[in-house]
Design a protein around this nucleic acid. Structure first.
Lengths: 130, 130
DNA sequence: GCTTGACCTGAACCATGGTTGAAGTCTGAG
DNA sequence: CTCAGACTTCAACCATGGTTCAGGTCAAGC
């Protein structure tokens, strides 16, 4: 059973992930992705990087900054594909972050509702200003 | 009944709003605030600008970009203090924006939960990649 | 009327998250 | 072996949302 390790060029990773190659290079420079280099210095990505890119993009859409995403990805074992446990833990972690963002937004919405009620004509009553 | 129009210097507005003077100038350059100038070219703000600054900051915390905030503030009558109707309408408008953001976050949270469940080991089942 | 602190402008700088372009190199199909 | 197309790096540029600084002016209290 010779499992040929499937590798992707940056163009293939870009196409399959939907993320521009320039962005993939940017991520790699900032430590969010890793790649092997060919003898000719071209990047070759393990297929697992496709998952990792998806994780990065999904995390970004939640509002997590790249630095923080990179910090979590830093827990990955060196060169190994992410374990299910890792993904589960990361997903839980982001789940908490999402909950916090939602809660913050809901607080804000209440404030705006109160504001609409008071008309914001007097500062004493205005939740925005207080 | 001579109502002396209360005016604030930029320093006073900064202190009372909690927003640095540099930021207030930045907002003004970008059309989010208006001010009168003294004969000596210093800014004087109507007290209503304090409400406006509060509105800008609260909107920012909801994630609305300054350009969009400026667009809504552009509906304000020239030089007049914002009416209660304006504030109510703006608050409703942001309320919708907040609801949309919350809904988007909740969708994301579901995706992450599903991801934690599948372990992201097969792309066919992974909501993140799909 | 003098002095000091607050204010003015414009330009440069910062961080984040990238995109674009130039100039050169590699890879793979024919 | 050749040659087009994909890849490389580095630097510059973009947008957003500001901060900082230099050099100069204003305003208010004594």
């Amino acid at each position: 059973m010779s499992r040929a390790p499937i590798e992707l060029t940056i163009g293939e990773l870009a196409e399959r992930s939907g993320v521009p190659a320039s962005t993939l290079r940017y991520y790699e420079r900032h430590g969010l992705l890793r790649s092997r280099r060919t003898t000719g210095n071209q990047r070759r990505y393990a297929e697992a990087m496709l998952r990792q890119v998806a994780f990065i993009r999904a995390s970004q859409q939640v509002g997590i900054p790249l630095a923080e995403i990179g910090g979590v990805l830093g827990f990955l074992p060196e060169g190994a594909a992410p374990t299910p446990e890792f993904w589960a833990r990361a997903a839980q972690c982001w789940g908490r972050a999402i909950d916090e963002r939602i809660a913050a937004l809901e607080r804000r919405r209440e404030v705006f509702s109160a504001c609409a009620g008071c008309g914001c004509l007097t500062f004493g009553e205005c939740a925005l200003v207080a």
